[in-house]
Computed example of a mutant assay.
Amino acid sequence: MTLSDQALLAHDPESRALPGDIAIWLFILTELVVFGLLFVGLEVGWRNAPETFAQGARTLHVAAGFANTLVLITGSFFVASAVRSIRQGCIRACVLLLLGGMATGALFALIKIAEYQALIDAGYRLGTSIFYSFYFLATGFHLLHVLIAMLVLLIVAVRCLFGAYDADSPTGIETAASFWHMVDLVWIVLFPLLYILP
């Protein structure tokens, strides 16, 4: 295949498949259904107890939530850049960018744990009200996904370092990136639902 043929394929939308393994897309779909049910629960709770949700939202640290949004978006930039790097055959750059994505996940977790601690110190817990039940469950479930995504990035970074992926076989990197982007997308929806809209 000539370079011009490759260029034509790259710009042909019908020639492009979903990045990563098909199994990750089935998993992502399942996870989005679960998070979607949480979002529906939030909406129902919000409609049935608007004042409780409004009071609860006022106790949250919007700056921390916004900072975490920027952190995850930065992580997505690193991870997307890692995919581009592996497709170009730049193994070292790919590994460094994956580790950068991991670092943003760690920063997200630290900010979220500090936020939890501040709320607990102020007397707000899982059983305080329906708002805090949703807040701690939804954000805790999301934090678990961030930690899993960090582990996935670490595994593929180490495997990449040892030659498991290259420009001809980037599927593992694309799969990890797809999962990371799902986690990022969920937070982008969760942040306004909990911190801003109530």
Rank of each mutant, 00 (worst) to 15 (best):
V83W: 04
R159H: 05
V183N: 01
Q6N: 09
H142A: 08
F179L: 10
A57S: 15
L42I: 11
L96I: 13
I91W: 01
L194H: 07
Q88H: 15
A177R: 00
I111V: 09
P50S: 14
V146L: 05
W25P: 05
L119F: 07
Y116L: 07
W187L: 00
Q117G: 11
V40F: 05
H11L: 10
P19A: 10
R16Q: 14
R47Y: 08
L137W: 02
R58Y: 09
Y165G: 04
A109N: 00
C160E: 06
F136L: 05
A103L: 14
L154A: 15
L147F: 10
A23M: 14
L107G: 10
G100V: 09
T104E: 04
A67W: 03
L98P: 02
L197K: 06
A109W: 00
D166L: 03
L126W: 15
T2I: 08
N68T: 00
A157W: 09
L72M: 15
Y195L: 05
S85A: 15
D121R: 14
V79Y: 04
A23G: 08
L37M: 13
F162S: 09
S76R: 03
R47S: 11
F162L: 05
G100P: 06
I120R: 05
T128Y: 07
I196A: 12
V40L: 13
W46D: 10
L60R: 02
I73H: 10
L32V: 03
D21L: 06
F78D: 02
A82H: 01
F179K: 00
I188D: 11
F39G: 10
V186Y: 00
V186P: 02
A10R: 13
D21V: 08
V44M: 14
D21S: 15
G172S: 06
F35C: 11
P170E: 12
L161K: 15
D21Y: 13
G20Y: 06
W180P: 07
W180Y: 11
L161V: 03
L9Y: 10
V158H: 13
I155D: 12
I113P: 05
M182F: 11
L37P: 00
